[in-house]
Design a protein around this nucleic acid. Sequence first.
RNA 1: GCCGAGGUGGCGAAAUUUGGUAAACGCUAUGGUUUCAGGAACCAUUGGGAGAAAUCCCUUGUGGGUUCAAAUCCCACCUUCGGCACCA
Length: 834
Amino acid sequence: MEYNPQKIEGKWQRIWEKEKLFKAKDIFKKPKFYCLDMFPYPSAEGIHVGHLKGYTFSDVISKKKTMEGFNVLHPMGFDAFGLPAENFAIKTGVPPAKLTSRSIKNIKQQLISAGFGYDWQREICTCNPDYYKWTQWMFLQLYNAGLAYKKEAPVNFCPSCKTVLAREQVIDGKCERCDSLVEKKYLNQWFFKITDYAERLLNDLNKIDWPEKVKLMQKNWIGKSEGTEIYFKIYRGSTPVNLPVFTTRMDTLFGCTYVVIAPEHPIVSNLLDAKRTPRRVASQISNLKEIEKYIEEAKKKTEIERVAEDKEKTGIEIRGIKAINPVNNQEVPIFVADYVLMEYGTGAIMAVPAHDQRDFIFAKKRGLEMIEVIKPKTGRHPPATQSPFPEKAFQEDGILINSGPFSEKTSEEARKEITKYLEKRGQAKKATYYKLRDWLISRQRYWGAPIPIIYCSKCGKVPVPEKDLPVVLPKIKDFKPTGKGESPLAKVEKFVKTKCPKCKSKAKRETDTLDTFVCSSWYFLRYTDPKNLKIFASEKKIKDWLPVDLYIGGAEHAVMHLLYSRFFTKFLFDQKLIHFDEPFLKLFNQGIVYRQGAKMSKSKGNVVRPDYIIRKFGADTMRLYELFMGPANQATEWSDKGVIGCFRFLNKVWSIQERIGNQESKVKSQQLEKLIHKTIKKVSQDLENFRFNTAVSALMILANELEKQAKISLIHYSLFLMLLSPMAPHITEEIWRKLGNPEGIPSGSYGAGKKSIFLEKWPKYNPELIKEEKIQLIIQINGKVRDKIEVEPEITEEKAKELTLKRERVKRWIEKKEIKKIIFVPGKLINIVI
RNA sequence: GCCGAGGUGGCGAAAUUUGGUAAACGCUAUGGUUUCAGGAACCAUUGGGAGAAAUCCCUUGUGGGUUCAAAUCCCACCUUCGGCACCA
């Protein structure tokens, strides 16, 4: 009988569902294991073999953990709000809800036909009101805690998507979704105060078992830097204004030859404002008009323009007033330049052109003064005032020069001492800044969870009372954006018009929706109790199942979803709503699957669909190939040909069953047993360490060996099937249950039977059985392999030497030469140095 | 520019954790077997070179170094990929 996956796979998928084999039970006699996949966006095209890679990993691990006696939670759902469905609606008029539910049906079928053991009773969908009710509830918790706020700010606006974006969604100044150049706009928008959690988000990275790469990306994104704020005085008449600047390089303070203020800095408008500035001073500024013009232009520039002019730094001096360097009372000119950012630090810097590349370029162009204040500890360097920019040695620690009483100190000492000196005089204080910005969460789009806020002319912003949740997204017909930077919801009068929950007078609803990342920031909580109507998840279920033990997904979410989820978790922990403050204990990033040298994408037309592979070779073959392709965390190229190897392997597995019998010869049986136990060890360890490719290879080696036998005992074959079962569940289940026939085959601990293979215990290897009686001792001469001998593993050095020197081949190599040294590595090799 | 991860046959890769037989396993290719035929079946060979053969020499991006011994450790460089990017 031939191996025919099409005949068996659908059958077992139905039976597993009927037997509820992979359903997570809320009974905790066994230790729990929560294995989570990043849930997919239900795109109309379905998922491709790249998505399936990570899902295969999590399914293999879940099945193995089940066999190891864990109570496994392995759920799946859909991240269903978002732009593609809405853009499709604008084009075709098909409502996003309709398209989404169609896509979900399709993807769910794809996942089921791959044999994944998800607990579909727990399926969630973020666009379902039962779900987004709690997303809105989360928003309200944050709002009530003062962590959700609305403010006018310069934001990134995508002209094609007609909505603002979070900073994380802007890549190289372009929209991550459609690649349009992002515009800067001043808009009134909602933010989450994630910056309040910057320090904890940074520190707690130490607590979690995540790829170092992802941790580092988060660390850099949070971008903590510790330094000092220094107060430069600017005199307007007799009253000085303090201008704080931020620096991490106090040791270069004597090298400051000018200061730069960001164009948006309030101090600039104050200085220019004739009403506030004494007439005498205002008249001191001789180039008011030019400065105003520069500021206007800078404000209009997009982020990309500001940076893309690359090194070509623009700016303008405020003529007529000076700033005073507190450390030496030196008067320095003041510039307004957009290479200084208002959003970071104090929005003003002290410029040290001799030791900072950016300041150097700016100063060089204008012929500004440069003062060298640091020399390298050793060696000579061209003067910092001449080289295009300071060499590394200057930027790192050096020795101070031209720095008054601090000359001859090291950078490190000087940093401390200068800070102390100014601190005492109240002219500086230590400060810490982060690159992390608050999370912009409002979107001027339809297909998202409405922000549950009501605007009342009397009461102002009023949160929607909990009992009125969810604020249901109304069904609409016209999906086109209003063109006024508003969500299409603004056109829906029925939705907008409401009553103030407080004073009952006429009021309007917020029409912006929430960023989809808000929906996905807490979804892992909902799986534990997906149908709860009273709370996002009951306390008990949260305690029983969470945190997530293993999270598998792509690295592209490193600074978005993964950071946001951590923020939500910490917030809910602070609210005493959950008992843990890190959501995902272990994270694994599967590598990207390439084809024709590029990441699979619809636009490149290089997508491989699993449906085709499954139809042709079956789900087991596809799963095996996903595992076998290469290292799990590494990008690998998809090969249609390579799939065949896995199909051949399964055919072999299938045909071996014909050899079952109890008459293995004794010697053979012992050798086989040794190999089987070695394989149990290898596969168990490899699966534990995400080395799926070598686990598959070990099973291939074992299958090749089994194939050579005339007869194979049932127990040996059964062990093999069990090891293979998490990876190729259908074929192993089929053979396993079939073998439970009434022909008198004993059903021992490893006996096959009529119940599922996944109810069996994961096999354990016997350490006694994998001990070698004989090993190959490598004989090297001058480090090159020249001979091998079979010996006992415990062979002594003397004995090994004796045997080695007797060998003809060895004698030939040594011949009259003097043996200088013999190195013996027990159980491994002997090296003769001549 | 800064940070990070890589570079091993014709291809995907093993061996890097612990320095100790480089190329396991699979694909491809070549030759053969079976079959009415086909190949997504089976068998053999498959890093390069020399040789009739035994066997020998060379080979892990490049160049140095440490060591009895280096794909593995150290230094410098080249290169591919990923992230950040005027963050003071």
